[in-house]
Design a binder for these strands. Structure first.
Lengths: 199, 199
DNA sequence: TTACGTACCGAACGCATGTTACGTACCTGG
DNA sequence: CCAGGTACGTAACATGCGTTCGGTACGTAA
């Protein structure tokens, strides 16, 4: 029997940490077995014990990205409606260092995803799920009178996601111009513009 | 003297075409001297005659991307104000095959740009210029009463760019869900929501 | 104890990459 | 005509990559 049955998951966690560090400052283009190995001061052969091929490592990196995104600390959800949408989008924006790293890695993964059909549909599904998560809150907002009665929640969800991720990209490239306050103000103005009150 | 002084630029144009083809379906991660060479049925040595190093080839690819973006066919600009902004943003969205390829290559370049400080500031500057191009039209729109008098043109330009590029990314990954009509409708609704009329 | 399977290292392999060197064809200037 | 420089192609080079292989240490099972 294996000498340390519980260590295996612990080791994989160590590898995950090293993969994350590499991705955060080199991106997927700089993700290599040796870079990960030297980042945790082990040999490449050790990596192969836990991830038999590089595809497996990349798959693990993407899983890790999705997992860390799902398990990131989130704001409490305030009252239903646009306030909830605001909290969800604030949780996406690169306001803290961790958020910045996570977003940076997501953007980096797009190069890979666009070149691989399987990864591309995975990313498309992820967007679909994100819109589906936001949509009920927009429906609630409409019911509360925070949106025009003619508003299309599905389309608005796509618009909100578009605004948010477009802001993410601009903020990643020019963090000095998009500090936390600016991002929050842009989000608030964007959400306010969705409100009813026009002819 | 060189045997064909005018051919040099013609040859570089051929190389550009091959580089473009490679980028369009492999991205920057798949841009290699041999992939370009085989894409135009020549040897790698021939490439080195025109681009002595790979950095030069990458720099040329980025220049090409910027040039093709700048020189792409554009809609006529209608009346000043939001209608002009609409035309500018429509010119960005991936509505045609060429637009899709161009946007795909831009997104692919972000992985490279985020890992290289020089390229990152270049991309940041590009965004600054794009916002600066849109901003005067937003000021005109405000003067025309198409925007609230309290509107901040610089911030609105950033918001419009964010919405547009966020939509670009979603559309690239899920073109079936974002056909031309959907993208245009989203843009129109987004611009309409900026209008005055609220308390 | 022995036997065995796991964990891991270090070195090597095969391959693709960027780059360089050498050779040849060709056009141009004298 | 010839001399020389340019435009390639061919072949080799060194490097870094993913992957494989033998070997050692160790803990468990019998």
């Amino acid at each position: 029997m294996p000498p340390a049955p519980g260590d295996r998951e612990a080791r994989r966690k160590d590898v995950s940490e090293a993969v994350w560090r590499v991705l955060a400052d080199k991106g997927f283009g700089g993700l290599t077995l040796r870079s990960v190995a030297t980042a945790m001061n082990v040999s490449t052969g050790m990596l192969m014990h836990y991830f038999p091929t590089k595809r497996a490592l990349i798959a693990h990196a993407l899983d890790l990205l999705e997992k860390r995104t799902a398990e990131r600390p989130r704001r409490e959800r305030p009252a239903e409606g646009l306030a909830s949408v605001r909290a969800m989008l604030l949780d996406i924006l690169p306001l803290t260092g961790d958020d910045t790293a996570r977003n940076r890695i997501w953007v980096s993964s797009w190069d890979l995803a666009l070149a691989d059909e399987g990864l591309a549909t995975g990313q498309a599904d992820r967007y679909t799920r994100l819109r589906a998560t936001i949509r009920p809150h927009l429906e609630a907002a409409r019911a509360l009178g925070e949106l025009p009665t003619t508003a299309d929640p599905e389309q608005l969800a796509a618009t909100a996601v578009a605004f948010t991720h477009g802001l993410v990209v601009q903020a990643l490239f020019d963090p000095g111009r998009f500090p936390e306050g600016v991002q929050a103000a842009m989000l608030d103005d964007f959400l306010a513009s969705l409100g009813p009150g026009r002819t």
